[in-house]
Nucleic acid binder design. Structure first.
Lengths: 210, 210
DNA sequence: GTCTATAACGTGATAGAC
DNA sequence: GTCTATCACGTTATAGAC
């Protein structure tokens, strides 16, 4: 039988899990190791026993967070069997579900990169991930065919990420300005799963002067 | 004659200016008052003499930053004489110029709001700013006329902010993944001044099944 | 108003008993 | 492995001379 779901058994995992939650919510500078220990239900000394230092623990967390976040892009963007449009639908569906579950991830990654650009950027080696993907080839082909106009690949990627991720980065603001409670906000996000591909296609395929 | 440009005269202003730069770049938790004092070229004690505490100084800075950032929206969105399309062009032109000059503002505001949602959200009372503006009325009218489809006002505002602001929030990442140096990145941003309105119109006015 | 010196406190990390 | 107690240090804030 497979290993039982380890909720309380492994204290190392308990600490890591607590660290993930607290770091994601408050960022490196604002979290105290005591917060993590408390959230894990263990003593402060144990944290250093298992992970040596706050920094070491943090590196593990941000490393895994970035990796987990990016890995789905790779799978979706490099599938030879799906069209460009289908990839957009898959990306929206997958990432909006993910971000509804863990909305703190983008602002966590972005603000930590701001605080440590040189070190963290390289972990995020997404250059080839985006620009040398099957997706990029399909995109380029449609540009050459004149189907896509007024939109380079890099501008397109900014638009994609902006439409996909920004509503989560700005969620506290959106909730406030739109007077949405948590469930109403979440409904809006889920709605975007079907609307995002529509908007992206409009951006790609519409030509001015119709 | 108007008051001379005060670069060195007023030390209070010197401190405030240094605080703005440092806070914008590193956020509240990661900045030390010593950093600010050093950047201002003054002694640490003077900071407390003028502003009592790090927190008080911070509140002044974030307050003014938010206000400065939002105030142009009000002017542009409530002009009865411009059309919806013209407002989009004005917003893009104004804000992209602003953000090229001060790219740290959005990530600063967003990450500080994350760390203190209840307190800071209310300062950002942009509800009526967006949803009770002339812009909102013009938008609503086009929805009723069937010109705008598959796009509510709140979803539209998320898209607008996402396309406008996200490339600056994610600038370190974009520079890394697109292998752009600073000037190339800036050119891309300036290009968006004319592309943004095009894309927004595509999102608003295209109907599926053309 | 501006400085130096220092107090007061919070936080990361460790020693050492169990 | 896990805990309590404590150290070592950095940072905010203030006292007091000038």
């Amino acid at each position: 039988m497979a290993k039982k779901k380890e909720l309380d058994i492994n204290t190392e995992a308990k600490i890591k899990n607590a660290a993930k939650n607290v770091f994601h919510k408050k960022g490196f500078a604002a979290t105290r190791t005591r917060d993590i220990a408390e959230a894990a239900g263990i003593n402060l000394a144990l944290l250093n026993y298992y992970f040596r230092s706050k920094e070491k623990l943090f590196h593990i967390i941000i490393q895994e967070t970035m990796q987990d976040f990016m890995k789905s892009f790779h799978g979706i963007f490099n599938d030879e069997k799906t069209t460009l449009d289908e990839k957009l639908e898959l990306v929206a569906s997958h990432y909006i579900d993910l971000l509804v579950e863990q909305p703190d991830i983008p602002i966590f990654i972005l603000s930590e990169i701001r605080n440590n650009p040189e070190e963290l950027k390289e972990k995020f080696q997404s250059r080839h991930l985006f620009f040398e993907s099957v997706f990029a080839k399909q995109f380029q082909k449609e540009v050459e065919q004149g189907k896509i106009v007024n939109l380079s690949m890099s501008q397109f990627m900014m638009n994609l990420m902006g439409l996909l991720v920004f509503p989560f980065v700005a969620s506290p603001l959106i909730k406030a300005t739109s007077e949405l409670d948590d469930t109403a906000y979440q409904e809006q996000m889920l709605q975007r799963k079907k609307l995002f591909p529509i908007w992206m296609k409009r951006i790609m395929y519409t030509k001015e002067g119709n």
